[in-house]
Amino acid sequence: MFFHGEPCPSVLLMGCIGDQVYHCVVAICSDNLRIITAHVPLEEAWTDNHMRREKP
């Protein structure tokens, strides 16, 4: 969880449709959820089935 995110604290979620992995950043505000971004992660940037980012 990113506690100092704007506009509210946020989390990175991972989901799959078939074999395709998706990442979505969602801000958790006091009265709603806000989708900040949703994307297909780059294969070469992630390990452990897209759950951990490679260090540069």
Score class of each variant (00 low, 15 high):
residue 9 P to F: 11
residue 18 G to V: 07
residue 45 A to G: 00
residue 54 E to Q: 10
residue 23 H to S: 12
residue 22 Y to A: 09
residue 1 M to N: 11
residue 9 P to M: 09
residue 2 F to I: 13
residue 7 P to T: 12
residue 33 L to D: 07
residue 16 C to W: 15
residue 43 E to W: 01
residue 45 A to C: 02
residue 34 R to Y: 05
residue 6 E to H: 06
residue 40 V to Q: 08
residue 12 L to G: 03
residue 51 M to A: 10
residue 36 I to W: 04
residue 39 H to W: 15
residue 56 P to R: 05
residue 39 H to R: 07
residue 44 E to A: 07
residue 8 C to H: 10
residue 30 S to T: 11
residue 30 S to L: 09
residue 33 L to E: 13
residue 7 P to S: 06
residue 55 K to Y: 13
residue 46 W to I: 00
residue 50 H to K: 00
residue 12 L to A: 08
residue 40 V to H: 04
residue 4 H to S: 15
residue 15 G to L: 13
residue 27 A to T: 12
residue 36 I to D: 15
residue 46 W to A: 01
residue 14 M to V: 12
residue 25 V to L: 10
residue 3 F to Y: 07
residue 54 E to H: 02
residue 33 L to K: 03
residue 36 I to N: 08
residue 2 F to M: 07
residue 50 H to W: 02
residue 27 A to F: 05
residue 28 I to M: 11
residue 24 C to Q: 12
residue 52 R to S: 03
residue 5 G to F: 14
residue 2 F to R: 08
residue 12 L to N: 08
residue 12 L to C: 06
residue 34 R to V: 15
residue 51 M to T: 14
residue 16 C to T: 15
residue 54 E to P: 00
residue 46 W to G: 00
residue 52 R to V: 01
residue 49 N to V: 06
residue 25 V to P: 02
residue 45 A to M: 02
residue 19 D to N: 07
residue 16 C to E: 15
residue 3 F to K: 12
residue 10 S to F: 04
residue 4 H to R: 07
residue 44 E to H: 05
residue 18 G to A: 10
residue 56 P to N: 03
residue 5 G to S: 13
residue 52 R to P: 01
residue 39 H to A: 02
residue 16 C to G: 10
residue 50 H to S: 04
residue 5 G to V: 10
residue 5 G to A: 14
residue 21 V to W: 00
residue 29 C to V: 09
residue 48 D to L: 03
residue 10 S to Q: 12
residue 22 Y to C: 12
residue 2 F to G: 01
residue 32 N to H: 15
residue 24 C to F: 10
residue 3 F to L: 11
residue 10 S to I: 04
residue 53 R to W: 02
residue 36 I to S: 11
residue 31 D to L: 03
residue 56 P to G: 12
residue 11 V to I: 15
residue 1 M to C: 09
residue 54 E to C: 05
residue 45 A to L: 01
residue 43 E to P: 01
residue 29 C to K: 03
residue 18 G to E: 13
residue 20 Q to V: 14
residue 46 W to C: 00
residue 44 E to Q: 05
residue 53 R to L: 00
residue 1 M to A: 10
residue 20 Q to L: 14
residue 8 C to K: 10
residue 24 C to A: 14
residue 33 L to V: 07
residue 43 E to F: 00
residue 35 I to P: 01
residue 23 H to C: 08
residue 6 E to M: 02
residue 17 I to W: 05
residue 21 V to N: 01
residue 45 A to V: 00
residue 28 I to R: 03
residue 26 V to Q: 12
residue 53 R to C: 02
residue 14 M to K: 12
residue 26 V to T: 13
residue 25 V to W: 09
residue 20 Q to K: 11
residue 17 I to N: 13
residue 15 G to F: 15
residue 42 L to Q: 09
residue 37 T to S: 08
residue 44 E to R: 02
residue 41 P to F: 00
residue 51 M to I: 04
residue 34 R to I: 15
residue 34 R to E: 12
residue 40 V to L: 09
residue 3 F to S: 09
